[in-house]
Simulated assay, not measured.
Amino acid sequence: MTDMTHNSDLPTGGSGLASATGIVSGMGGQGAREIIAILAVAVLVIGGGEFLLRFFDVPQFILPAPSTIAAVFASPEITTISQHYGYTLFELFAGYAIGASIGLVLAAVITQFPFVEKVITPYILLLVTTPMLALVPLLILNFGFGYTPRVIAVALASGPMVMVNAATGFRRVDAGKIALARSYGASTLQIFTKIRIPMAMPMVIVGLMIGAIFGMITAVGAEMSGGGFGIGSRLTTYSSTLRMPEFFACILILAVTGIAIYAFFFWLGKKLAGWES
């Protein structure tokens, strides 16, 4: 399964969360100067965008100014957006919990039983390479416009991402440590729980993070396919009625959600796999 992971080119000693992306390595020791620089760039971009849009008198229905977008969060419409955002979070959490759980179990099974890996690998490849959004209309046709097709789509999108990264982590454990444990009479279960899981934790967390992000994208895409509720449906409604401030307010909420997902798993990686750095 190593060739299937998104991080297969990483060396054994740095295959975890801290080396999964260039952003991660730069987030750990931020000083005051870096934080000030980040805030200064944000002010420059937002302020510059506000000035240019107003200077050239760009119509609001084409691209609203940042202040106009910010005003949405103080308007009554934010109540409606918040309700639909709650529907999206429910779909994401439910589908992700199912997909990630199955993915972790499958990763453990195929690590211990190579025959099982040979049997299910073609199907896992099929799930990884197939855009789950393409299956949403079929799922809606079979399960209706409720939560069910969206939760299934999120589970199918997140599960394989969790599985391939976790399986890679389980396989990258130093063979010398396993041989030493066997020489002391450790069982297969003890080796897996005491050696493989702790050593694979950085890659497991990377898989969980990627699965969560893919799940959020799939949830929003599924909502845009139909159903009438969820922040994805709000995006469709606002874009079709040229309500661009509300549209970009939804985009901003989704962007912050993605950052929150990343920050959570970065924090989790520091707690559970801080030894790697």
Rank of each mutant, 00 (worst) to 15 (best):
E50G: 01
I81C: 05
V72T: 15
G95V: 00
K194E: 08
M27C: 03
F61R: 12
A97G: 14
L106E: 01
I197T: 03
A181K: 07
L126A: 13
G86L: 15
P122A: 10
N165S: 14
I251C: 15
T79C: 02
Q190R: 14
V105N: 01
L63N: 05
S239K: 12
Y184P: 00
G215H: 09
A157L: 08
I78E: 05
P131F: 07
F264M: 14
L53G: 01
C250H: 03
I197F: 00
G29R: 15
P76N: 02
T236V: 14
P198R: 00
A94S: 11
V136H: 03
V43N: 02
F247P: 02
I251D: 03
P64G: 00
T79E: 05
A42L: 15
V164I: 15
I152Q: 11
I98V: 10
M199C: 11
D9C: 00
G29K: 14
T257C: 12
T129R: 06
Q190D: 05
V204T: 12
I213M: 13
F229E: 12
A175Q: 11
G185M: 01
R234Q: 14
S19P: 04
R33G: 10
K177Q: 13
T218S: 12
Y87H: 14
A175Y: 04
P198S: 00
A18S: 13
H84N: 15
L252K: 01
I23N: 00
N142A: 14
A181G: 05
G211F: 01
F143K: 09
Y147N: 10
I102V: 14
T88C: 06
A263Q: 11
V164H: 02
V128S: 00
V220G: 09
L44K: 04
W267A: 15
F192N: 00
G16V: 09
E276K: 13
P11C: 04
L104Y: 04
A40Q: 05
I35Y: 10
P149L: 00
M209I: 01
G22I: 09
A18I: 14
E50A: 03
R182Y: 08
A107L: 02
L242R: 08
G185K: 06
G146T: 04
V45W: 13
V136Q: 01
P76K: 07
G211C: 02
E34N: 07
Y85R: 05
A179Q: 15
G227H: 12
V154N: 09
A32P: 08
L133N: 04
A249E: 04
I81L: 14
G211L: 03
I69M: 02
M244F: 02
L92A: 10
F55A: 11
I231G: 13
E246V: 07
P76M: 05
D3C: 08
L89F: 13
E77W: 06
M161G: 06
F55Y: 15
S8Y: 11
G86W: 14
A167T: 08
A32V: 15
L180A: 11
G258L: 06
I231S: 10
G31T: 10
G16C: 02
I217P: 10
A222I: 00
G269C: 05
T88Y: 09
S158P: 06
E117R: 13
S187M: 06
T5C: 04
I46H: 01
A219P: 07
A166K: 07
T129A: 15
I152N: 11
I253H: 04
M4Y: 02
A249L: 07
G221R: 00
I217Y: 08
I110D: 08
L141H: 09
T168W: 07
G176C: 03
Y87K: 02
R33Y: 05
G22A: 09
V136P: 08
V24R: 04
